[in-house]
Computed example of a mutant assay.
Amino acid sequence: NALRNDWPGYSLDLFTYPQHYYGDLEYVLIPHGVIVDRTECLAKDIMQDIGDNNIVVLCVLKGGYKFCADLVEYIETLSRNSERSISMKVDFVRLKSYHNDQSTQDMQIIGGEDLSKLTGKDIIGTGRTMKALLNNIEKYKPKMIKVASLLVKRTSQPDGYRPDYYGFEIPNVFVVGYALEYNEHFRDLNHICVINDNGKGKYKV
């Protein structure tokens, strides 16, 4: 599940995608079908590790909503067809840390209900940006916290955060699609793609 730094990706000509993004993308990094299959595998791993527990799934908006929805659906299906069941509640929080394609130092935690209700609960967080959120959640002393992220970027920083479950390790490139956005664009793109300079310029704010 690790994509090499020299991975050339897939030609855009092999896939269908919204016409309004023609000319804005470099290549398809991970096709939608591969994302879905990998998410099902993660659901099985989670079921195996924490079956028979009541959990709160904390979805990180907006970039994590498709991954979270698919992951929760697979866990529910596995739970229905298994002797080991999981009772799940889903809550939502939004972390805002990007300006154009650059990650900023300022992290805003927006929305979500009262996090004090997480005290003593098992929590699975789903999303991309986690350190600030984890620091916030840990104040409430939940029983257990596990983080599931679809993507992990390979960086030169040795202290880079590693989630408990992840779908793909990818090169340090800026990706869009499957709810990952660039200034609110590309959420309607099913595949995970690398944006090109034309796309960055067109949608820059």
Rank of each mutant, 00 (worst) to 15 (best):
G125N: 09
T126V: 15
K153L: 02
Y140I: 01
K62M: 03
G112Y: 00
P8W: 03
I145P: 00
L151I: 06
N135W: 07
I192V: 15
T155C: 01
A132D: 13
N136L: 06
K153D: 01
Y140E: 03
S79N: 07
L14E: 12
R128K: 10
Q19N: 04
S103E: 05
A148F: 08
V60I: 15
F168Y: 08
R80Q: 12
D13W: 08
G63S: 04
S156V: 04
C41T: 14
E181P: 01
K200H: 10
V72E: 02
D106P: 03
I86C: 05
K121C: 12
M88V: 11
V72Y: 01
G127D: 01
T77W: 00
N172L: 06
D37I: 04
R162P: 02
D91W: 13
G51T: 00
L180N: 13
Y165K: 13
I137D: 06
L115A: 10
P31A: 11
V56L: 06
A2I: 15
Y27M: 12
C68F: 04
D188I: 11
T77Y: 09
V176Q: 04
Y21R: 08
I137A: 09
M47K: 09
K117S: 13
G177H: 03
L12T: 00
R162I: 13
G64A: 11
H20T: 11
I137E: 07
S116R: 12
R162N: 07
H191K: 09
M130L: 14
N135Q: 14
P158E: 11
L78H: 08
A43P: 03
E40W: 09
V175Q: 06
Y10G: 07
Y161F: 15
I109D: 05
F15G: 04
Q102H: 12
R94P: 08
Y27N: 14
Y165R: 13
L180W: 03
Y161P: 03
D197C: 02
A132F: 13
Y21T: 09
G201L: 10
D52F: 00
G51D: 02
N100L: 09
V173S: 04
D106Y: 05
D13L: 12
V152F: 07
L115C: 04
S85C: 11
G127K: 03
F168S: 00
I35L: 15
V36H: 10
L29A: 08
N172M: 06
L118F: 09
Q105N: 15
L133I: 12
I30L: 09
I46N: 02
G64H: 09
G201K: 13
Y178K: 00
K89Y: 04
L42S: 12
D6A: 12
V60R: 05
K153I: 02
K117D: 06
E184K: 13
V36G: 02
E26P: 01
G33V: 05
F174P: 02
H191F: 08
S97F: 07
Y21K: 07
R154G: 03
K204F: 13
G177D: 03
G201D: 09
D49A: 15
